[in-house]
Simulated assay, not measured.
Amino acid sequence: MSQLFRQVALLSCRTPITLSQRFRGKINIQRPRAPHYERAKVIAVAQSLPTLEEPKKQITCFQRRQREADVENPYVAVIAREVRNWLEHSRLIGFYHLNSIKQDDLFEVRVKLHKQNMHLKSYGKQIVHKAVEGTRFEAILPLFESKNCIVFSTEQRVGQLLRITRRVPQMILLAGIVDERLLSRNEFMAYAQLPGLQAAQGELVQILNMAASNVVRQLETHQKNFVNVLDVYAKGEPETTKPAKEANEIEKA
Rank of each mutant, 00 (worst) to 15 (best):
Q3H: 07
E246I: 04
T240I: 15
A253G: 13
T154M: 12
L120C: 01
H222F: 12
I172N: 15
T240Q: 13
V151W: 08
F144W: 02
H119G: 05
I27Q: 02
L162H: 01
S146C: 04
V71D: 11
R163P: 05
Q223F: 13
Q66T: 02
Q198T: 15
F188S: 00
L204C: 08
P243V: 09
S100H: 13
R81C: 13
S184R: 00
Q223K: 08
G176K: 01
P16R: 12
G176T: 03
K41M: 09
H119Q: 10
S122T: 01
T60Y: 12
H97K: 14
D70V: 01
T241D: 14
V151H: 04
V158I: 15
I250T: 02
S12E: 09
E249N: 14
F107D: 14
A46C: 06
Q126C: 04
Y75M: 09
L182R: 02
L194Q: 09
V215R: 07
N99V: 05
L208H: 08
L113A: 03
S2K: 08
R167H: 12
N214P: 01
N186G: 14
F62H: 08
L11K: 12
L182P: 03
R6Q: 11
D104C: 05
S153A: 15
A190V: 05
H89T: 14
T15N: 15
Q116M: 04
R136I: 10
A40R: 01
R181N: 09
E220N: 13
L161D: 07
R14C: 05
A244R: 06
K242E: 13
T154S: 14
I93L: 12
L204F: 06
E249D: 15
S48V: 04
R166Y: 13
I59W: 11
Q218I: 08
S153N: 06
A244E: 03
M118G: 02
Y37V: 07
I177D: 08
K147D: 10
I43V: 10
Q223H: 14
